[in-house]
Design a protein around this nucleic acid. Structure first.
Lengths: 344, 344
DNA sequence: GTTTAGCACTCGAACTTTTTGAGTGCTAAA
DNA sequence: TTTAGCACTCAAAAAGTTCGAGTGCTAAAC
């Protein structure tokens, strides 16, 4: 089983994978000799395929069908066969650029558009995880009094992201006090990341100084409430594309997939994981920690602002996915988003 | 065909509809006599059903199958047969209340939760159209300077909704000017609805007074840009529930539905339409203007803040939907949301 | 004049059987 | 080592059966 893969073996494996990607049907020896001009007869190809099966790279659904690549084969394929093809046509590149630009400056809008874009250009599902709030840099905070006991807290980050939260207070706080509180906080928190802001606030809550200044104590408490939520948003677009894939034609399978993606927490785990490493990463079928993801693969890339990794985006599709086509799309989109998000 | 429907006819039609709702299978004369204790033989029921078919209330897929209610029958059913059953179990009511409360004060969060709730309690799709911004009442506006040429405009409505927009300016505007601009605008726009605000701003842009005060001109221009977007958000949840319905087991059909809902504009039209009238409304299958909605029905109700209708929410499911169960859910949820949204 | 039992008839769904053809593995010759 | 040849396999498609729920009609019963 551990015999090294010959050059010819590689060629044939590549052919099988590419045919399978194109047709979703088990590939036979015959088909290969016809479509890829290897100067070999079907019989020879059969022998090689038999070896590949031995090595755990191919599998046959039953004796008299063609063969299907295993997850291991896809892994090998993306790691060491698929290489030179990694560039995008100028047209696609333009389209991506144009549509990202069009989405405007608002970060959330832009990310959503990016997700939609990943989905349409790849014809699978696009997914974008918004930057963790915690990595944003604090810029300014405001308290707006809505009615006697309702205050709207607004937190602005340097990149233009806005977080807001409706707070209820027991006692009425006069408008001037709200302004003073905001000024105090803005002075204190200038330039910190929100993660640091959080720590700072918790520390302040303990400190002597604040204890005796009830206004400041209130200010700290209110802002702590505001910053508490760190729910990471995920934009998942193009779910309907998945319905197009023949391997999910079966209604039961489809249902399972949709259910799985309805719980975004699963997806979140997965994306969090791919944020560990920089650049393009590929999770193939069973490698993914999501059991439900059987038969699906994920191509991701991290994106950055400045030099900090802040988020991750990618494409989810069947294991039988056009990696050669998808990888550059993901890669390029991530780089573009990084550039656009960068606070100039 | 125009013969009036007898009492017995009604009873039998009701039986057919209810059986069909429960099973999604064509209903035969036999089945009915068994499950609903009408003191009639199958043969008699057959005669009546034949009459009903004549009247366009039932249809048979083929000679030797049972019968299926037509859209017209559903219409009759919800209008004049289904009546007394319109109350919710205490348990369900509690669940709805509890979950709405839990969602917190933020209007957007709450509406999203309401949609999810409609979907789980009905086991179809939940849909909520967020209030048209234009109906909100202006409360306050802020301009936050992010960097030399980037300004974040924040618009707060009285109900706590926040709208924000990143603006780029050609020339740098000093912070003090931004504050003065905001003060000026806040004075001018106090208490108007956003629709009125918009009109006012456009009017001001023409006025003499403003022409010669370049700062105020800028203020007006900036705020006009901010308010320009009136994209109504729609929360659609529980799409996976639709996959459960046997009538959509076919992959092609499913795809069509998902594609249709991906374009939210269609849905928007439909919901806009149901906002014309107050209270619960029901669109059955072909009655809906969405051609793609074939086989689907929509139960909606408007919700209000104070006494103004501001939005609409509802349930989308197959025409064969448990109206008796869904209507009170929609009704109650709408009322509850109205109450919770009310600015106390 | 309703209502119902009886019966022949219809027709899709489900199950079987047959046919077809792409694909395999093995053997022996090139 | 490669390949032609051939027997064999097996799922999928096509064709053929069976089954039964359901219908419509007629004539007897109420």
């Amino acid at each position: 089983m551990e015999e090294q893969l010959s050059e010819r073996g590689k060629r044939i494996l590549e052919a099988v994978i590419e045919d399978y990607i194109a047709t979703a049907e088990p590939v036979g020896s015959r088909t290969i000799t016809r479509s890829h001009e290897l100067a070999l007869s079907p019989a020879t190809v059969r022998n090689v395929m038999s070896d590949l099966e031995e090595m755990g790279l191919l599998a046959s659904p039953h004796t008299s069908a063609g063969r299907i690549p295993t997850d291991k084969a896809y892994r090998l394929y993306v790691n060491s066969i698929l290489e030179a093809k990694q560039n995008l046509t100028a047209g696609k590149r333009d389209e991506i650029r144009r549509r990202c630009r069009m989405a405007g400056k608002d970060p959330a809008e832009m990310l959503k558009e990016a997700s939609r874009l990943l989905s349409t250009t790849s014809s699978y599902m696009g997914v974008v995880m918004a930057p963790r709030m915690a990595a944003n840099v604090f810029h300014q905070m405001e308290f707006v009094k809505l009615s006697s006991h309702r205050i709207l807290a607004i937190l602005v980050s340097q990149n233009g992201t806005v977080q807001n939260r409706l707070l209820e207070t027991e006692e009425e706080i006069p408008q001037e006090d709200l302004v003073r509180m905001a000024n105090y906080l803005n002075g204190m928190l200038q330039g910190l990341t929100l993660a640091q802001v959080r720590e700072r606030l918790l520390a302040e809550m303990q400190s002597e100084k604040v204890r005796y200044d009830s206004l400041m104590a209130k200010a700290i408490a209110l802002s702590e409430q505001t910053i508490r939520t760190d729910s990471t948003e995920i934009f998942l677009e193009g779910q309907a594309n998945i319905l197009e894939q023949p391997e999910f034609a079966d209604a039961a399978k489809m249902r399972e997939i949709f259910r799985a993606f309805e719980k975004k927490s699963l997806l979140l785990d997965l994306l969090d994981r791919s944020m560990q490493a920089e650049g393009v990463q590929i999770f193939i079928g069973s490698e993914s920690p999501l059991l439900k993801m059987e038969g699906m693969s994920l191509v991701t890339s991290t994106y950055l602002t400045g030099k900090d990794t802040v988020g991750v985006l990618g494409v989810i599709g069947p294991t039988r996915m056009g990696y050669g086509r998808v990888i550059p799309i993901v890669d390029y989109t991530a780089k573009l988003i990084s550039r656009l998000l960068d606070t100039e």
